[in-house]
């Protein structure tokens, strides 16, 4: 088996994550799509790290995980506070700048 299979899997997962962000309206699911994209990128990092025999790729994946954790915390806090004020988590309802 070629290492490229892992990369193809990463690309498929990234595409699905991107499609989720574009298609879903529930803010929480949109957020999970972003997480899926980050994870797909991580898989690509780890695979490239293995191809080149260099651990730097794994370190970068580690950083991505840490930043993603911070991002999730802040993003979910935003979702919760928006839900408190507008009683909805649909991204279509958040159009305060409109009109």
């Amino acid at each position: 088996m070629d290492y490229a299979n892992y990369l193809y899997l990463a690309v498929i997962l990234f595409t699905i994550g991107g499609a989720t962000v574009l298609l879903r309206r529930n803010a929480i699911i949109v957020f999970m799509g972003i997480e899926l994209m980050l994870n797909a990128a991580n898989l690509a990092f780890v695979t490239f790290s293995r191809i080149h025999g260099d651990l730097t790729g794994q370190v970068v994946a580690f950083f991505v995980m840490t930043v993603a954790a911070a991002e999730v915390v802040v993003g979910l806090a935003i979702i919760v506070s928006i839900y408190r004020s507008r009683r909805s988590v649909s991204v279509d309802d958040i159009n305060l700048l409109k009109n």
Partner: peptide
Amino acid sequence: GIGLGITLFSFLGRLTLSGGQ
């Protein structure tokens, strides 16, 4: 979404990976 997938796949198709270490 499908366009994104096709773009990424075509990039990956043009990639030549060495055997890997």
